[in-house]
């Protein structure tokens, strides 16, 4: 595999890492019993959602 393809594979793996933690954040949002924590989970979600959608 040439190094440019390898870099692309690494980038794909990063989207997987992003998705993995986004799922955990969303799960935390629905699981929490604390209103303030829920809001913070919501704010924390934003960069992960935007990266997943390749918008930021």
């Amino acid at each position: 595999m040439d190094s440019v393809t390898l870099s692309t594979v690494v980038m794909v793996l990063y989207y997987c890492i992003n998705a993995f933690f986004l799922v955990a954040i969303v799960a935390g949002f629905f699981r929490t019993r604390n209103a303030q924590e829920a809001v913070l989970y919501g704010i924390m979600m934003v960069p992960f959602v935007l990266r997943m959608l390749r918008l930021k």
Partner: peptide
Amino acid sequence: MNLKFVKIMTLLAVIASTGVAGKLFH
């Protein structure tokens, strides 16, 4: 404040803000 209400409002705010900003980024 009702937890369910907070969660729904938060979710709506996240969707709205990422939607608006996402459109501008795009």
